Computed example of a mutant assay.
Amino acid sequence: MPLEEVLQSLREYCASMPPVAAMQVDVAGYDGECLSLRAPLAANVNDKGTAFGGSLTSLMTLAGWGLVTLQLQLRGLSAEVYVADSAIRYLAPLRDDLLARAWLGEGGQANEDGWDAFFATLAARGRARVQVEAEVALPDGGVATTLSGRFVAIARK
């Protein structure tokens, strides 16, 4: 499937989930390594006028899930993708719109070899896991929040 069709499919899928639609999540783009999602602060604000921690976590989790889903769809594969576990770090308050980026993490060194190993395992066992890293950026180039997570794909029969 062509990249633009995959990105549009991700947009539609996000819009179809009520909690994600309430966050007003949109696919900002894919640069070949990182999938970026955005959401307006106004729909994700807490009582302090900063980004709600649950929204930060949700957006990074969605970015990780979306990255794995995108990689599957680009290869024409069908699988269910789940987050197996994750660790979140809140580093600084965010008083601006949310922009999350996700990329292939530890063991993959953000290159095709990591994806190749993931897809070889999926083909051989019908399930595979991959480490994904994500962050929400601050407007000044710093980082508000990070996620390190394992995502699992289970081939559809």
Rank of each mutant, 00 (worst) to 15 (best):
V27W: 11
V27H: 09
A28D: 15
A28N: 10
G29R: 11
Y30A: 09
D31R: 12
D31F: 14
G32W: 06
E33L: 15
E33I: 12
E33Q: 15
E33W: 09
C34K: 11
L35G: 11
L35S: 14
L35Q: 11
S36C: 12
L37E: 11
L37H: 12
R38I: 09
A39L: 12
P40A: 12
P40N: 12
L41G: 14
L41P: 09
L41V: 07
A42K: 11
A42W: 07
A42V: 14
A42F: 07
A43L: 03
V45Y: 01
V45N: 03
V45D: 03
N46F: 10
N46D: 15
K48C: 09
K48N: 12
K48A: 10
K48D: 09
T50Y: 03
A51N: 03
A51F: 01
F52A: 10
G53C: 07
S55M: 07
L56W: 02
L56K: 02
T57L: 08
T57M: 13
S58E: 01
S58N: 06
S58W: 02
S58Q: 02
L59D: 02
L59F: 01
M60T: 07
M60W: 00
M60Q: 12
M60C: 14
M60A: 12
T61Y: 02
T61M: 05
L62P: 06
A63L: 00
G64R: 03
G64M: 07
G64V: 03
W65H: 09
W65Y: 11
W65N: 04
G66K: 00
G66P: 07
G66D: 01
G66N: 01
G66C: 06
L67D: 06
V68G: 07
V68K: 06
V68S: 06
T69Y: 05
T69N: 02
T69A: 01
T69L: 06
L70C: 04
Q71M: 14
L72R: 05
L72H: 05
L72K: 05
L72N: 04
L72A: 04
Q73V: 05
L74R: 09
L74M: 11
R75C: 13
G76Q: 10
L77Q: 13
L77G: 06
L77R: 15
S78K: 11
A79F: 03
A79I: 07
E80M: 03
V81C: 11
V81K: 08
Y82S: 12
Y82L: 15
V83W: 01
V83S: 01
V83M: 15
A84R: 10
D85W: 06
S86K: 01
S86H: 06
S86D: 00
A87F: 03
A87E: 14
A87M: 05
A87D: 10
R89H: 13
Y90H: 08
Y90A: 09
A92F: 04
A92M: 05
A92C: 05
A92D: 13
D96W: 08
